[in-house]
Structure formats: structure tokens, C-alpha cells
Design a protein around this nucleic acid. Structure first.
Lengths: 220, 220
DNA sequence: GTCTATATGCCGATAGAC
DNA sequence: GTCTATCGGCATATAGAC
């Protein structure tokens, strides 16, 4: 009673802050449960319990299971690709330092953040099966991809790469390779050693700078 | 009655052949439904109906939904990676012909065989979530990967690549890139043009042959 | 705003007819 | 060997107490 009327927005939590906290906890729990059980396999009961709330609280804060999932898909695309972009920005692509850092990042995503890749796969499957959200998914992937494109673009210029090499194309290749290697490492870790991602990027950038194209007939 | 006792195994279908045909039809239907609805989302009723049979026929031929799925996961891994290996075997990697053929293959898998990538994603998710089948999944991926490794190995030797370049590593990179690009194309087709896969392989092989490594300090 | 209790529907699996 | 009918269980979503 005492701390109710004289402290308008601080002192413990305001009602709005409490609600925001509940929402955040539910979103965290949802991310974990969706990653572990899949969208269809996850139950709202387990999500609510994991967050420490009841089913009623979930429905009070979100429209339902699908709304919760779509909120994650749209606003929780932290995408570790952005981290790769930052790493490539700090170190020069094609160097040993960048390769070592990217290897660390790959292991981090594949081995430590065990919910990341499965949740991403769930997002992808949902988008492929529901054309309505396909655009949202594409938009979410575009942001980190452009960050990657930016650092690659300046790097290509510095290294004197042929002008017709598109930074967007290289960024797409790097991102696809990253995702593919993360997934392969989850299935067969021995086949994807720590250095592989960095090594592949060394090859890639060396090949780009090696000339317009190895078969110099007139391919493009 | 007439065609029963005097034609032991031909004339229409024998009982064993009929059963084999039912199994095959159920497996085909299961692959489609699992790809479109996911493992949890798919119902045995829809699978049976898609195949043109009843729920009872499904249970008579398979242990249940999970057994059906695991049979697909283990024996239906046609894996288009093997096709990529064949293509690289016919044409020289790094050439324009190989690049064109691989571009065609990528579009074929991504655009035409619309159930392939989602089903593969379902397999991957199931394996990641069920450690018991993780080994089976790894084994299935290993076969086509080794086919790819074989053609890459001879190709590297012909092109005079540094001896310390591991064909297994290159094969893993190629396979991961292929899978990653297929997925990206399903989300944002414009970002993955037909030539991209072949172009990336040209860069990759050019980089491998460019020397031990661009940063020739003493990285490996 | 959060909880408990419940209504309604669907799914996997089985039993028994043919 | 295949089909129809059904049982038991669990999930989503809601209604009403606090």
C-alpha cells in the first residue's frame, strides 16, 4: 500500500514494466521450446510452464501459439550472420586472424548455442509452408546479409578484386556456407573442424582475386 | 479363380508384389506429406489417403508414423549431392560447362523438387532432437559425400593443387554451400541466381590452386 | 493481469469385419 | 491384406474466480 501511490513509475516494477517482463520471459521460453519440440510439437502449456507462468498469462499477452511464433520469427532474428560481418570488419578477410575468429564463431553457434540452428530451421520451414510470411522471413534475412555485403564490398575493393565481382553474390555465398557448415557440424562434428570455415573463406577470396575467372575464355 | 493356380508369380500382381507396391505407394505419400506438414504436423490419416489406402493398411505395412518416417530417413536419402558429384565427374570443376550444369542442378532441386529441401530439413531436425538416429543420419550423408570427395580428389590432383589440401574438407564445403544456397533460394530467389553456385565453385577451386594459401606466412 | 477449470476437437493406435 | 469403427489421450483456446 505504501509504495503504490507516491512512486509513479519506479519502486519495484510498474504494471507496464511487469507486463513487458512477462512478455519477454514468455518469448524466451517460446524460443527454447519451439527449438526443442518444433512449432507443431510445442505445446502452449510447456511454453507457459517454462516461463514460469500459466496458460492464461500466455493468452493474455499474445494471441496464441502462432502469434507467439510469428513474433519470434519477425523480431527475434538476431542472426549470427551479423556477428560474422562484424568479425570480417575487424579483421581482413582472407587473413589468419579473421579465419581463426570465424572458426570460433562457427563452433560457438553450432556447439554452444544449441537452440539457434533448430529454431532457424523451424522458421525456414514455416516460411516455406506459409507464403504469407515468406516476405517477412526474406526481409529479416536481408538486414544482416547487407551488413555482411558492406564489409565484403570494401574488402574486395581494398584487395583489388575484379570490378565485376558482386559483393552481394559473395555475401550470399558466405552466409549459405556458414549455415550449411553449422548444420553439418550438428550431424557429424568430425567432418567440420574448427578451421574449415576460415579455410574455405581464404580459398574463396583468393579465388576471387586470382583474376576475373580461372577459365578466362569469356564466361561472363 | 482361373488365373490363380496356374500362374505362380506373374499375371497381374502376386501377393508379395502387391504388398511391395502398397509399401512403395505409402512411402511416396509419406515423403510428400511429411515434407508439406512436418513430422509432427503430418497425420497418418492424410498419408494413407494420399497413397489411396486406409489407416489400417498403413499400420499393416509399417509399425506406425515414426517407423514410416525413420524408413524414409534411412533408405530414402537419395541426396542430390550424389548428382552434383556425377556432374563434377563428367565436366572438369572450375570450367564453364560444370558451372552451367551445377546451376541447372541447383534450380532443379530448389524450384522443381519442391518437397526435397523441406523433407531434408525435417530429417535434420529429427536427428538433432533424437540422438539415437543421429548416427544413422550421419551415415546416410556420408555416402554421397564420399562420392563427391572422390571426384574432387582426382580433380585436385589433375589441377596440381597443393598436396595438403584435403579432398574431404573441400567436399564438405561444396555440400554445405549447395544446401545453404538451396535454402536461401526458397526464401529469396532473386538473391540466388542460376549461375551463383557454379561461380562460387570457380572461385573456390581457383583459390585452392592459387597456392598453398594467400597469406603465405605459415598458417597450416 | 494472472490463475484454475473446462469445453471442444483431433490424432495415433487398435479391434474386428470381410 | 485391407477397411471401418472406436477408444483413450492430449492440445488449443476460453470462461470465470481472484
Amino acid at each position: 500500500m505504501a509504495a503504490e501511490s507516491d512512486e509513479p513509475a519506479r519502486r519495484r516494477l510498474s504494471r507496464a514494466e511487469a507486463k513487458a517482463r512477462t512478455r519477454a520471459l514468455l518469448l524466451d521460453a517460446a524460443a527454447r521450446v519451439f527449438a526443442r519440440k518444433g512449432f507443431t510439437g510445442a505445446s502452449v502449456e510447456e511454453i507457459a510452464e517454462t516461463a514460469g507462468f500459466s496458460i492464461g498469462a500466455l493468452y493474455s499477452n499474445f494471441g496464441g501459439k502462432e502469434a507467439l511464433f510469428l513474433e519470434l520469427l519477425s523480431h527475434r532474428q538476431t542472426d549470427r550472420i551479423a556477428e560474422a560481418a562484424q568479425t570480417l570488419d575487424r579483421y581482413e578477410p582472407g587473413t589468419g586472424e579473421a579465419a581463426a575468429e570465424l572458426g570460433r564463431l562457427l563452433l560457438d553457434v553450432a556447439d554452444k548455442d544449441i537452440d539457434f540452428a533448430p529454431l532457424q530451421a523451424e522458421f525456414w520451414l514455416y516460411a516455406v509452408r506459409n507464403p504469407d510470411v515468406l516476405d517477412a522471413m526474406a526481409a529479416n534475412l536481408r538486414a544482416p546479409r547487407q551488413a555482411l555485403e558492406g564489409v565484403i564490398s570494401t574488402s574486395l575493393a581494398q584487395q583489388g578484386a575484379p570490378a565485376e565481382v558482386s559483393a552481394e553474390a559473395v555475401a550470399t555465398v558466405v552466409a549459405a556456407l556458414f549455415g550449411g557448415l553449422v548444420r553439418q557440424r550438428r550431424i557429424d562434428p568430425a567432418s567440420v573442424p574448427e578451421e574449415l570455415f576460415g579455410q574455405a573463406l581464404k580459398w574463396l577470396f583468393a579465388g576471387i582475386n586470382a583474376g576475373t575467372t580461372p577459365a578466362a575464355t569469356e564466361s561472363e
